[in-house]
Design a binder for these strands. Structure first.
Lengths: 347, 347
DNA sequence: AGAAAAAATAAAAACGTTTTCGTGTTAATA
DNA sequence: TATTAACACGAAAACGTTTTTATTTTTTCT
């Protein structure tokens, strides 16, 4: 089968002995060209399966219809749901999604942004890498904004840069989650969280504090474990179980909660009778672990949709380019067996 | 902060009162332009943060340095690891990855391909949607191949189209998995699989048959459950447990295996003593379920890397555009507690 | 038949590059 | 001093579109 590269206007013009402009107009069915020639050209174009070259269009229109998305990782339930939401909206509005992974590295984030900012995309949707959050260096974002490229941040955001954002109310959601533990009868509640510079981890920790305070519980720092990376995770959780006694545990993500629950069960504790668990993110892990894990659903796909909608709005309607909004995506607490204590346990 | 759009060669040329070509050459440090002007232009360009417009380059070079990836879904451990592998290689070679989701729909697959084939990408990496596999309609692939656009298929592939492929030896891997069950002492082994048109499900089913045959076991069709979609999944698995007795189960993905194991435990069966389980795909579910699930690691990231390497090779070296290879990515069986029977159970 | 109006088509510019080729200036050589 | 070589730069083409403007052809009217 001989290779037949996509045919161009120029080739059609040459073949049919008319000018390029006539071909262009005929294909777009302009009244400017006689019905005769129009039909002839259209038939020819159809036969050779003519399709306008996207790159040429991008250059001419100075818009690519591409959205650049930069996330820390993709093998991750929450981030992949967000992508899914972004893709759905983008696709429905004729945009494509270019995905780059920062792998939690500041440098990769910067490089990827520069790579895409040279005309490859019309706007960015980004969730900050851990390193960026730790460094607090946001110049690369300010730069693209100065160049007039719209930017939407989601989930891991910062106050230091002024743009559209889509987040959940992490503090409130954590507050709600901890309250589920409290209502289920937990009196001493442990927390497995991240280091503080991860904005969402910090905010969820705040919610934990607030919930305990409002319930009149004292916050015991010994019940709080801050995990830097997932490597030594199980180790640190196991230590907690060995040194402290508690009857409820909140993990700021589903991995922490599920891991802790597993360790507890392996130690012979009954869930939820002896200890109740709740996590964050309603991923496959929460649904499939034993017992099923109560959790806070973040609705990542909605967050992705919201982010994409805001971005596309800015792209197609640059009038309000200076008014930014922060959309709070509603979370919902999903109560499953891991917090379902019978009433007899309560008192 | 006033918006300062990216500066162009033309603007630099006008500002410095030289020709566009001189600016272009100076920036690429050509000896053709005097050191004086070169330095002047370079300084100016650097000051205004000049970067060549990617779209213009794409048009000129007739290559976009974009790879189009079309997968059925992204909220899925295996597919996201593949993306991760693709992205790593692509990024290291200066390519960007455009991701489209077919959502298992033939039409979306076709539309996405057409959308990208109009010049937006240099080549495709695709895993077939369920609908496409069911319809066996591969014309859209033949078309892009005829247009000279390289294509690599991975995981869900078909013999009907001739191109580079990256797969695992599903039959062999399933054979190995079932043998783990057999070695662990299982005598009656059930299978939870997909409907036959899913190539990988079918091949894994073959491996199951082969393993039983080679071990001298009879294949009992009543022990085989074919799941169409995940909706009624738990229901159908529960029925199996109610109507049949068996002491080993192989699930063609980790979700099937984990779900079945959960149901078994809820029914009071001990794992692995009463019944052993093994799955496919080493995702978070396998690692975190109780007990941890033995499984076949597919090494999705390696598959993604292999696919990306083959594609980029074809892109940068179109000489061998007619020689296609199928790379078999090695799988590895990971034995965890779910098949770890003490010897006393064996005989 | 000739002029004016209308219709059909073509030319050219623009989007931002790179590159080939051409031209003019200066320096080196006979 | 005349000829050539080296050097520095500019013009133009090309990638594939769309759109504005210009030109040609046809039709209509007196």
């Amino acid at each position: 089968m001989a290779i037949r590269r996509q045919i161009t206007l120029k080739e059609i013009a040459r073949e049919l002995d008319v000018s390029i402009s006539t071909v262009s107009k005929a294909i777009r069915n302009s009244q400017e060209v006689s019905l005769d020639t129009r039909e002839k050209i259209q038939a020819f174009a159809k036969f050779y399966n003519y399709r306008p070259n996207n790159i040429a269009l991008s250059l001419k229109n100075r818009r690519t219809k591409n959205i650049g998305v930069i996330i820390p990782e993709i093998v991750h339930h929450f981030f992949s749901t967000v992508i899914s939401g972004i893709e759905r909206i983008a696709n429905s509005k004729g945009y494509n999604v270019i995905i780059c992974l920062s792998e939690e590295s500041f440098d990769k984030e910067v490089i990827n942004m520069e790579m895409l900012a040279n005309g490859s995309i019309d706007g960015f949707i980004v969730s900050l890498s851990k390193e960026t959050l730790a460094k607090k260096d946001y110049r690369h974002f300010q730069e693209v904004l100065n160049e007039g490229i719209p930017l939407v941040l989601f989930d891991r955001v910062t106050d230091e840069i002024n743009c559209d954002k889509a987040i959940v109310d992490d503090t409130q959601a954590a507050y709600d989650a901890v309250n589920v533990l409290i209502r289920s009868g937990s009196k001493k509640i442990a927390l497995i969280t991240t280091v503080d510079y991860i904005s969402v981890g910090y905010l969820r920790t705040l919610g934990y504090h607030k919930a305990l305070n409002d319930a009149g519980f004292v916050v015991n720092p010994d019940l709080i474990v801050k995990i830097e990376d997932t490597e030594g995770c199980n180790q640190k959780i196991a230590e907690l179980f060995q040194t402290e006694r508690f009857d409820g545990l909140f993990g700021v993500n589903e991995f922490f909660a599920a891991s802790a629950m597993k360790i507890a069960r392996d130690m012979g504790l009954k869930v939820p009778e002896d200890i109740a668990f709740i996590g964050f993110t309603d991923g496959i892990l929460s649904k499939c672990s034993s017992p099923p894990l109560s959790t806070v659903a973040q609705h990542g796909d909605e967050m992705g949709e919201a982010a994409a909608k805001m971005l596309i709005e800015k792209l197609e309607n640059p009038i309000n380019s200076e008014v930014f909004q922060t959309q709070i995506i509603a979370t919902s607490v999903i109560e499953r067996e891991s917090t379902a204590r019978a009433m007899s346990y309560m008192n």
